[in-house]
């Protein structure tokens, strides 16, 4: 530790010497910048432009000003989509992160065959977009599926978990937790980044498991927790595949799983109102960007960086 503290003292001096790394940054960022200009920027700008047009995809777009935006705010299904999406984001993101972190801790080390368990637990996440998945869900959550068979064993009569308007969204949230594989892997990688000597030292000092978790794991993992939070949030707002597959693309039963992007997709590709869909997309961008900004501001108070 003394060594590190010593180095830390010299850090200030080093930082002063370095006024800026513009040249190096330009080099390191060159591919990204080319990509931004050539690949990313055009669709971004184009979709913004399209949000002010009447665009059927089949014909050239025509400028209609703010009409899409005003139409959006008097569309009851738009608000239904917002409601569904916010409910989903607020419940499932924290749940999934908690499950992923807990499992990452269990699967981190200290047991034979962990590599195998990790792979097995990751498998469901691999299935996410497969065409077969709707059928598979029915086997588990259908009126005659696995869940209800188990419940029936205990004398409880189940419902159609994905086909009943009151339960479908909740079931989707559970499905999302079930595919916690990706954040789990990122947590695992993060855990591996924590120098073992911290734990060794803490053990020697007699710190218990819980204390080690609170005082070493969590603080040193905060950048990764933060990353997962930000990206799961961005991702959850754009949730599409699960609902699309489970509801056969309709957002049903009766719009109970009408996710924002599902509605947007429906507008763009089956109602041929790509202008409206683009307006929805940009509204979403503003919302998500706002939440992400808040997230970044808040991160100053709880995320612990080494720099």
């Amino acid at each position: 530790m003394a060594v590190i503290q010593e180095v830390a003292r010299t850090r200030g001096a080093a930082r002063e010497r370095r006024k800026g790394d513009g040249k190096a940054a330009a080099l390191f960022l060159a591919p990204w910048f080319v990509g931004l200009v050539l690949v990313t920027a055009f669709p971004l700008v184009a979709s913004l432009y399209l949000s002010f047009t009447d665009y059927s995809l089949l014909e050239a777009p025509g400028w209609i000003g703010l009409e899409n935006y005003t139409a959006m705010f008097s569309d009851p299904r738009f608000f239904q989509a917002l409601k569904v999406t916010f409910t989903y984001v607020l419940v499932s993101v924290p749940l999934q992160l908690a499950a992923a972190l807990a499992l990452a801790m269990v699967l981190d080390k200290g047991l034979r065959g962990l590599a195998f368990y990790r792979s097995v637990y990751y498998l469901p996440s691999l299935l996410g977009g497969s065409v077969a998945i709707a059928i598979l869900w029915r086997q588990v959550f259908g009126a005659d599926g696995l869940v209800n068979q188990v419940l029936g064993f205990f004398g409880i009569e189940g419902v159609g978990w994905v086909s009943h308007p009151d339960y479908a969204l909740g079931t989707l949230m559970i499905l999302n937790v079930w595919t916690f594989g990706a954040p789990m892997i990122i947590f695992l990688a993060g855990l591996r980044q924590i120098p073992a000597m911290y734990y060794e030292a803490a053990s020697i000092d007699g710190a218990g498991r819980w204390r080690r978790f609170r005082s070493i794991t969590v603080p040193l993992l905060t950048p990764i927790i933060f990353f997962n939070l930000v990206l799961q949030l961005i991702g959850a707002f754009q949730s599409f595949t699960q609902a699309f597959i489970v509801s056969g693309g309709t957002g049903g039963p009766v719009d109970s799983t009408l996710f924002y992007t599902l509605y947007l997709y429906e507008k763009g590709f089956s109602s041929y109102q790509m202008g409206y869909a683009s307006a929805m997309a940009w509204f979403l961008l503003l919302v998500v960007a706002g939440m992400t900004a808040v997230n970044f501001l808040a991160s100053k108070f709880w995320v612990f960086y080494d720099d």
């Binding site: 990204w32 931004l36 690949v39 990313t40 055009f42 669709p43 971004l44 184009a46 979709s47 399209l50 995809l57 930000v230 961005i234 707002f237 754009q238 599409f240 992007t261 947007l264 997709y265 763009g268 590709f269 790509m274 869909a277 683009s278 997309a281 940009w282 979403l284 961008l285 998500v288 960007a289 992400t292």
Partner: peptide, 19 residues
């Protein structure tokens, strides 16, 4: 950079296709 992943693919894909 972060903004670029906040737009759903479904509105990005058509301009991308044109490009």
């Amino acid at each position: 950079m972060l903004m670029s992943i906040m737009l759903p693919i479904h509105v990005i894909i058509v301009p991308q296709y044109i490009l």
